[in-house]
Simulated assay, not measured.
Amino acid sequence: MGLRDEIQADLAEALDDPEGLADAVRPVAGIRTVKGSYDPNIGGTAPTTAIRYSARGVFDSYLAQEIDGSRIQTEDMKLLVLQNEVFEERDGVVSDTPATPKIGDHISDFRVLNVSEDPAQATWIIQLRK
């Protein structure tokens, strides 16, 4: 087991632990709308597909020193999710490989502004705005 797997296992355990973070963990539902290719057979438009994904995560606010008023605003939220728990669902089929949230997605009534990962590549750190 590599370092990344160990970190993810430890974090998953902390998220499940009633004496740990279990009370802060919330279900996360994300959606991305993807425009398809131009299709003259459906009125000359490009159809859209909704890609959904779900996980569990911990929502947090930004520290005062992180808020600059433009890139990060006081209402912005920070979301931490384990990378190995984010799975896409497309046309009713759940992928067997973890997915990556993207800028422009919508997660739990918020819009994704930024997606980064920790140095061990175990968690996604997602900036959200209403």
Rank of each mutant, 00 (worst) to 15 (best):
M1E: 07
G2V: 05
L3T: 10
E6G: 14
A14N: 06
D16G: 11
D17S: 14
D17H: 04
P18K: 04
A22L: 12
D23F: 14
P27I: 07
A29L: 15
I31Y: 02
R32M: 05
K35P: 06
K35L: 13
G36Q: 04
G36N: 04
S37P: 10
S37A: 14
Y38Q: 06
Y38T: 07
Y38G: 14
D39V: 02
P40H: 06
N41M: 08
N41W: 05
G44M: 00
A46Q: 04
A50G: 02
A50K: 12
A50Q: 13
Y53H: 02
A55Q: 00
A55H: 04
R56F: 06
R56M: 06
G57P: 06
L63V: 11
G69L: 04
I72H: 01
T74A: 15
T74S: 15
D76F: 13
L80F: 06
L80I: 14
V81G: 08
V81Q: 02
V81K: 00
L82A: 02
L82D: 05
N84L: 02
N84D: 15
F87M: 07
R90M: 14
V93G: 03
V93R: 06
V94K: 13
A99N: 01
T100G: 10
P101T: 14
K102D: 09
D105R: 02
D105V: 05
I107M: 04
I107C: 04
E117A: 15
D118S: 14
A122M: 06
L128Y: 01
R129V: 03
